[in-house]
C-alpha cells in the first residue's frame, strides 16, 4: 500500500509530467491563459490519458508482446489514442451535449498531446503491473491538471504586472514555469 502511495506521489508531484518530465508542454503553454479553460483541458486529458493508458497496456501485454511485435508499439499506441479521442468526442457529443460544448474544442488537441502517448510508453518501459500502471497513469493525469491550473492562476496574475520590456510575452511565461518547477522540486524531500 505504501508503495502505491509513493508511486502516486512520485507521478503527480515529484516527477511531475510537465515540470520535470517535460511532456505536454504545448497544452501547458497554450491553454493556460485562464483558469477556466485550464480546468476543462485538465479534465479531458485526465480522462483520455487514463483510458488510453489502460487500452494500450492491455494491447501491448496480450497482443504485441506475445507476437513479439514490440517494434509496432509507437504506431499502434498513437492509433489507439487518435481513435479513442475520436470515439470519446462522438460519445460525449451524442450523450452529454452540455459537456461537449465545454470540452469539445480541447479534444482534438489531445491527440497531439505528447503527455498521453508519453504515459502509454512509460508504462511499458517501467514494466508496471496492471494496478501500478493504473495508479501511475491517474497520478500523472492529476499532476498534469494540478500544474496546468496553478500555472493558469499565475498567468492571470502576471498579466497585471509590469514586466521588463524584453521579457514581455513568452520569456516571462517560461521563467515563471521555471520557478514553478523549482517549487515542485521541493516535493522530492517530502517523503522521509
Amino acid at each position: 500500500m505504501e508503495h502505491l502511495l509513493l508511486l502516486f506521489v512520485g507521478a503527480a508531484l515529484v516527477n511531475n509530467i510537465v515540470l520535470s518530465r517535460f511532456l505536454g508542454i504545448c497544452p501547458f503553454m497554450g491553454v493556460s491563459k485562464s483558469t477556466e479553460t485550464a480546468v476543462g483541458m485538465s479534465l479531458s486529458v485526465a480522462f483520455v490519458m487514463t483510458v488510453s493508458a489502460v487500452v494500450s497496456f492491455l494491447i501491448d501485454k496480450y497482443i504485441l508482446a506475445p507476437l513479439s511485435l514490440e517494434y509496432l508499439r509507437t504506431i499502434v499506441f498513437i492509433l489507439i489514442i487518435a481513435s479513442l479521442v475520436q470515439f470519446v468526442e462522438m460519445v460525449i457529443e451524442k450523450t452529454l451535449p452540455e459537456l461537449y460544448s465545454g470540452l469539445g474544442i480541447y479534444l482534438p488537441l489531445i491527440t497531439t498531446n505528447c503527455a498521453v502517448l508519453g504515459v502509454a510508453l512509460l508504462n511499458v518501459q517501467f514494466k508496471y503491473s496492471f494496478i501500478e500502471m493504473l495508479i501511475f497513469s491517474f497520478g500523472t493525469a492529476a499532476g498534469f491538471g494540478l500544474a496546468l491550473i496553478l500555472f493558469a492562476g499565475l498567468r492571470e496574475r502576471i498579466s497585471y504586472s509590469a514586466v521588463p520590456k524584453y521579457f514581455q510575452g513568452m520569456p516571462i511565461v517560461f521563467i515563471m514555469a521555471g520557478i514553478l518547477s523549482l517549487a515542485f522540486m521541493g516535493f522530492s524531500g517530502m517523503v522521509k
Binding site: 515540470l19 520535470s20 517535460f22 524584453y166 521579457f167 514581455q168 510575452g169 513568452m170 520569456p171 516571462i172 511565461v173 517560461f174 521563467i175 514555469a177 521555471g178 520557478i179 518547477s181 523549482l182 522540486m185
Partner: peptide, 21 residues
Amino acid sequence: IAVMPPGAFLFLGFLFACKQF
C-alpha cells in the same frame, strides 16, 4: 540547476528574451 528541470525553463526564457532584444 542549469541541467536540472527548472533550468530548462529558465534558460529558454532568457534565450527568448535575448531573441526579442
